[in-house]
Design a protein around this nucleic acid. Structure first.
Lengths: 238, 238
DNA sequence: GCCGATCTGTACTGAGTCGTACAATCGCGA
DNA sequence: TCGCGATTGTACGACTCAGTACAGATCGGC
């Protein structure tokens, strides 16, 4: 059997491991492809697998009493889906679903628990990510409380852009309004404004990022802190 | 030397440990009292100690560009302050300060790392709390995005009431407005509304909780989820 | 008992977003 | 090529909350 080479891994967390830990993960990991709308973790159901994303984007959302959803976290190839298992928790009230299709290495739950028990460096690395994910959620709380729709939209586009190859984000206004927990026509207006400022170009079912610096300015300081912490703790960002 | 008895501990996490793990913590813990405004973790500075709260309330807040603060988390004797250390992170961009005075058992950082290395049950127990804290932050994000000022105030009062003995919460309108990230007169109005509904009674520098059920109704479903998870995972709530 | 600081109540205008409705446009499949 | 569903653009009134200002109430210290 061929030993997989570390350099072909796209997941940043796995790429940061030394070869021994990495190969222990690969030995029990199974490559899977993620189609849009696939549910990786269902609300309130036992978490069966941990997914190390190789490409694509996964959103963690909640359902509010009115059937509405709102996003609390975003994961790409810089992270993994299944943080609760790392913290010894078997299920969560939120749902994680595939927002942009991609690929992942998935590890079955019990095998994952054995892995982090046996490989302390792996546990520490994943813990760092769990912390950054927590920061990102906290930042979302602040953003929701203190920033305008346009600022929050700019922040979201930047975060999504970080996790996608190329500059075209396949999202509709309605989808964005759900993620941000706002009114759909409000997104349309905000997109026009960002487009007028030269930060993006809007197409049907697509937003193209033209100028990250302009988007950062439009985000009014709501973007960047978790990303800085990721670089500080784990290394090169995606 | 007298061996401290487990029944005298008020911190719920330490109370959930078996005697051996508990005494290992006590052997390196030092009782301290917490005065209002004490800073337990300074933004961007190394975390020197972990605090297991025995009484009182600690807020984790951020400073927004305009010098404003907003709360992302609340801890009482059901938890501990210093989650980043558990996750192998030495500092955090947020600040944790004492909001309501109380007492704590504090453990120096390096001793804490040795403890969780040696006592896996302790690590698992604290991990469960770290997860609940993450849930609470996520819930705050949702609350900030989807709920009215009055609902958010009701939620905050309930969370604070959970962590305080008795029904009198020593808070001013201005303080509440900071925690919620809203305008101070808005808090005054919302308090009147909650008072009119019979949920609370307002005094100068104090809010007395009269009827938790009415407060829960006023919170519009924004309260309760992290608390349920705490009970499910760790046991009796405070 | 008085004074100054703190806290609370109230008022006004404006910005931002909501909820809703409906028309225009686009793209895919028949 | 036509038609239909999905997506986007626009409008309008209503409501929440921001920002600000200021007066009254309350408390603690002298």
């Amino acid at each position: 059997m061929s030993v997989p080479s570390q350099r072909f891994v796209r997941n940043t967390l796995l790429g940061a491991l030394d070869l021994r830990d990495y190969e222990a993960v690969r030995a029990v990991a199974e490559p899977v492809s993620l189609a849009r709308r696939d549910v990786l973790i269902a609300a309130g159901q036992p978490i069966t697998h941990v997914h190390f994303l190789e490409s694509g984007v996964v959103s963690e959302v909640t359902a509010t009493p009115g059937g509405r959803r709102i996003e609390v976290n975003l994961t790409g190839r810089e992270g993994f889906v299944g943080v609760p298992l790392l913290l010894d928790v078997d299920r969560t009230p939120y749902e994680s679903f595939v927002q942009i299709e991609g690929e992942a290495l998935r590890v079955e739950g019990v095998a994952f628990l054995r892995l982090i028990q046996a490989h302390d460096a792996l546990r520490r690395c994943l813990s760092l990510y769990a912390y950054v994910a927590h920061l990102q959620t906290a930042d979302t709380a602040i953003s929701n409380g203190n920033h305008t729709l346009e600022e929050r939209l700019a922040r979201w586009l930047l975060m999504c852009h970080d996790r996608v190859p190329g500059d075209a984000l396949p999202v509709t206004h309605a989808f964005l309004s759900t993620m941000l927990g706002v009114r759909r026509p409000g997104v349309t207006t905000a997109i026009h404004s960002l487009e007028g400022a030269g930060g993006i170009r809007a197409r049907r079912s697509q937003v193209e990022v033209l100028d990250r610096e302009k988007l950062k300015a439009a985000a009014g300081g709501s973007y960047g802190m978790p990303e800085r912490e990721y670089r500080r703790l784990i290394g090169v960002a995606p």
